[in-house]
Structures are given as structure tokens and as C-alpha cells.
Design a protein around this nucleic acid. Structure first.
Lengths: 217, 217
DNA sequence: GTTTAATTTAAACGATTGTTTAATTTTATT
DNA sequence: AATAAAATTAAACAATCGTTTAAATTAAAC
């Protein structure tokens, strides 16, 4: 019996083999793009039969949907927990930045896939899930900054909705030009690259957002 | 006679038909990705025969190379002209930001193609041209900011090499999530979207970089 | 006007794509 | 141990891919 046809919520039950396929798909999609990756590539790397992808996910398109859903669920929770913490606004912003960076680092390739494959609006189902995620993120950021503004520590003439683009955009641009910065900063190993992100890049973004939020004309 | 086989610098001579193909290729590559765009798609939209792409450019791969070369040549010149201008450092930085944004806006899709199709390091030839471009850009930025630091108007504990990621990354992230921000800011027409970039987004980036550069702890 | 070169075309090439089928093996249930 | 369900397999499907060919058309050169 085919598991997909009779079960519309199939993406919720994730057995080991499904997760294995998703991980390989994430890796290959991020390396070669969605269209550039064939099901045969995935099945070869995941050491399964070609038919298993269709068997488990129904189609390549729905494999992508399952991948996006699988990888974006818990970021929202993490941000809502941050909101509840009783620390001063600037520290909260710094933690927010760390969460963002850590998140994207953890799910290495998926954000590239997200931005790239959802740019054309045809994949509406996945796009909607992604949009919901972004709306939730924006609400968290808004809440934190308005808190700081109410306390008088953040200036009020900042465009709150454009702060996330600056945080994520900076990190993303760094990541998208990885080989360029590896050469520029002489980051020879994976560890050195990750350390640069954890220390220097994170610090730069925190410094930038702090300056933007507390700078007085 | 085949024009490619006997002319290795074929990308320099660009007749009308070649440019027409490049423009269509840019549009489709940015919409659907390199792998997601077939030569048949291009030839249909450009209203030419399928064989003409191979005839003019040799292959799909070399069409991409020609496209990248064609679209990135004159940014370098524009930045070098800015360096010569005798205006105060902060204004120079603001102009730099405007040049970047205007540049990427003008060549709408190509930067998306650049970042995503060159991420995997297989397209070494195109990648090298792109790397050279980025190195040149970085030198310009360095020069401008060090000038401001020497004059005492910019602080010295900023990571100069990470400023470009913040500028371009912010803009790029905004552009990559276009439909999200269109809904968020209620930008119903192409004109409204472009106006938002020209006014609000540019202002936000300029404000951010200014704060980072002149903010005193 | 004839000849030569450049352009454009339709057709075909083999390779690869995502997906389905039907048979087989493994696992679970009774 | 027998039966039913699930998982896995190899093979085949039609469709599309990038590229090449060889003939037809247009433009240029003399």
C-alpha cells in the first residue's frame, strides 16, 4: 500500500528513512539547487532506490515542501521564549541576533533553498508556510524593539521592519560569498570559518544594530 | 562558418541579437534559475531558433559566462569615479550606497543569478570574474572609509570588510523576499515598490551605516 | 550577377529527467 | 506457521534536456 495516497498529513510522521532522505535533499538542493538536483542524485547519496522518494513523499515537489516544513517549525518557538526573558532590551536584541545566526548555521543549506526556490511564486504552499514564519519573526522583533523604545533606551526614528533584512541579509550575504571571504580572511578550515561567524561576524552585526538603535544625532 | 569556434573573445562583439538573447536569459535565469531554464524557453521568449544559442555562445554554460561578463564590467568604473570626487566622507558613503542599490536594481536579476549559480564552485571562470569584481569593490570601500577615519569623522573599531555585506545583504534580502514586503508595506505597483527602495530602504541603509561609522560609545 | 560567407531553420541525436508499474523481499499481525 | 501489509527493487514510461547536423535562406564581397 502506498503511504502517501491515503495519508494527507504524511509529513508529520517522519521515520528514519524519511529523515535520511530529507537531509540528503537539503544538502544537494543547497549545493546544486532544486532543478539541478535529480531524484537519482538523492537516491544515490541516500543509498535508497529511486522509487522511494515518490513512495514516501509523492513527488519531488512535495519532497521540497516536506523539507521546508521540517526545518522551519521550531524557530518560532525559540523566538517566543526569548520574548519572555526578563533582560534589558539591548541584550535581548543581541540574543535575537545570535539566535538568527545560529539557526541559519544549523540548517546550513535550507535557507538558501528557501530564498532561491521560493522566489518565483509558483510554489504557493511552501511559500505560505515561509511567509507565516517571517510574519511571526517580525512580530517578535517589533515587540523587543518597542519595549526598548518605551524604556527610552532605543531611539524611535528607526524602520523596525527593515532591521531583520539587515541582520539576516548581512549574514546571508557573507554566507553566499563564502569562498570569497574564506580567501579574504584566510579561513582555511571549516572550524575557522564557523569561528569567524561566531565571533567577528556576529559582533559586527550586533555592533551595527546597536549603533542604529541607540545612536543619537 | 560557426562564429564561436574561430573567435575566443566572442563575448566582446555583441550584436543586437546576442544582446537580445542575453536579456531574455537574464530574465529567465533570475526567475527560474540556470538549471530551471531551458534553451527552448530562452529561444521561445527571444523568438529565435533553438540552435542560435549554441551558434552564438557555444553552449548554455558559456551563455551564462557571457551574461555575467556583460553585466558586471562597468560597476568597477563607477566606483573608481566616486573615489575621485572631493566631497566629505559621509556623503561619499551615502553615494556609494546609492550606487550599489541603483546598480543592482538596474541589473535586476543578474545578481540573483550571480550569487546562486556561482555558489557551487564548479563554474570557475565566471566565479573568478565575479571575485575580481568584489575585490575591486572592497578596495573602493576601504579607501573611502579610511579617508573618513583619517579625518577623524569615522570611528576606527569597525570591521570595514563586513560593511559591504551589510549594505548589499540588506538590500538583497529585501529583494529576495519581495512578495513578503510588498504585502507588508502594501506596495501594489512596480512603481510603488521601486519608490520604497529609492526612499525608505536606501534611507534605512544609509542611516544604519552612518550610525555604525560615527556612533560614539 | 556570381560567388562566398554568415545566418537561420527544422529535424534528429543520445542522455537524462520525474514518475509509475509490477514483481519481490521484508516486516508485522494473527 | 500462515496471512496481510509495508518496504524495496529493477525496469520501463513518456517527456524534456543540451547539442549537433545538414539543408535552406539571407547578406556581403567581388
Amino acid at each position: 500500500m502506498h503511504p502517501i495516497r491515503n495519508n494527507t498529513m504524511s509529513h508529520i510522521e517522519l521515520n528514519d528513512k524519511k529523515i535520511q532522505i530529507l537531509n540528503v535533499a537539503e544538502k544537494l538542493f543547497s549545493e546544486k539547487g532544486f532543478e539541478g538536483t535529480s531524484i537519482r542524485d538523492i537516491s544515490k547519496e541516500a543509498k535508497i532506490n529511486i522509487a522511494m522518494v515518490s513512495y514516501y513523499f509523492g513527488s519531488k515537489e512535495r519532497l521540497l515542501e516536506a523539507l521546508i516544513f521540517h526545518k522551519t517549525v521550531d524557530l518560532k518557538l525559540q523566538l517566543e521564549n526569548l520574548l519572555q526573558e526578563e533582560i534589558e532590551p539591548l541584550e535581548k536584541v543581541n540574543k535575537l541576533i545570535e539566535i538568527y545566526i545560529n539557526r541559519i548555521c544549523l540548517n546550513k543549506g535550507i535557507y538558501r533553498v528557501l530564498h532561491f526556490e521560493l522566489y518565483n511564486k509558483k510554489r504557493e504552499k511552501s511559500l505560505q508556510a515561509f511567509t507565516e514564519l517571517k510574519k511571526g519573526n517580525l512580530k517578535s522583533v517589533e515587540s523587543i524593539i518597542k519595549q526598548g523604545q518605551a524604556q527610552g533606551v532605543f531611539r524611535k526614528d528607526v524602520n523596525i521592519q527593515l532591521i531583520t533584512p539587515t541582520i539576516i541579509g548581512t549574514f546571508f550575504h557573507f554566507h553566499m560569498n563564502r569562498s570569497f571571504f574564506e580567501e579574504l580572511f584566510d579561513l582555511k578550515t571549516e572550524e575557522m570559518f564557523n569561528n569567524y561567524i561566531k565571533n567577528d561576524l556576529t559582533k559586527h552585526i550586533q555592533q551595527t544594530i546597536k549603533a542604529l538603535l541607540v545612536y543619537e544625532n
